[in-house]
Computed example of a mutant assay.
Amino acid sequence: MKPTDLIELIESHQLIEKELIFERHTFLKTAGSSDTNIYFVEEGSLRVYVMDKNEERTIRFGYKKNILVSLDSFLTEKPSEFVIQALKKTRVKVIPKKRFMEFIHRDEANLKLWVKILEDLVIQQIEREKDLLIASPKERYERVLRRSPILFQEVSNRHIANYLRMTPETLSRLKKS
């Protein structure tokens, strides 16, 4: 299921509580806070990162027609070290956990949808871990370019390089080659 299919389903079941606008560089979630909302990005772009000593480590992006969530906090309802920050002015639709959980438990098809979403997230995480452990910078760049070409239009090279675990100069050289 594509994110656009999922959001149509969510909208048709009136799960969206509100719309929020975040100015550039503002935070949807800070480290040490809990956040059980699901965010559907209408416009703009976001990043999810954690701090490693004094360095930000970008782990995910969200841009138009993407869904973003602090999954550990969503599942446990406990504080998380994930930070969600707007990279540019961003408008999101907010789906509260309570409404979403009522929806997925309403019938078996909705529960199967939730399982599929979680399976997709696990597969994405496994691919990312493999990339970071064994793939060369060029292979990481090419895979992200194939999977998410729009990312390079929505997010600065500095943040993409951080996500790919390379310097902005290395990313620039790879883009030119």
Rank of each mutant, 00 (worst) to 15 (best):
K2D: 05
P3T: 09
I7Q: 13
I10M: 00
E11F: 05
E17G: 10
I21T: 15
F22C: 04
F22Q: 03
H25Y: 07
T26K: 10
K29A: 13
K29C: 12
A31R: 14
D35K: 12
T36H: 09
N37M: 03
I38F: 13
I38S: 10
Y39L: 01
Y39I: 02
G44I: 03
R47Q: 14
V48P: 00
V48H: 08
V50M: 02
M51R: 02
D52P: 00
D52L: 09
K53E: 15
E55H: 10
E55I: 06
R57A: 08
F61H: 12
G62I: 04
N66H: 12
N66D: 11
V69W: 03
S70F: 11
F74E: 09
K78N: 07
K78H: 02
P79M: 05
S80C: 01
F82E: 13
F82G: 00
V83F: 12
V83M: 08
K89E: 15
V92C: 09
K97M: 04
I104S: 03
I104P: 03
R106T: 14
E108Y: 13
W114V: 02
K116R: 14
I117Y: 13
D120H: 08
L121F: 13
Q124W: 06
Q124T: 08
Q125N: 03
E127F: 12
E127Q: 12
D131G: 13
L132G: 01
I134C: 07
A135E: 11
Y141V: 05
V144Y: 09
R146Y: 04
P149V: 02
L151H: 15
V155T: 00
I160D: 08
A161D: 08
Y163G: 05
Y163I: 05
L164R: 10
L164Q: 10
L164E: 06
M166N: 05
M166H: 07
T167M: 07
E169P: 01
E169K: 12
R173N: 13
K175I: 06
K175C: 01
K176Y: 04
S177N: 07
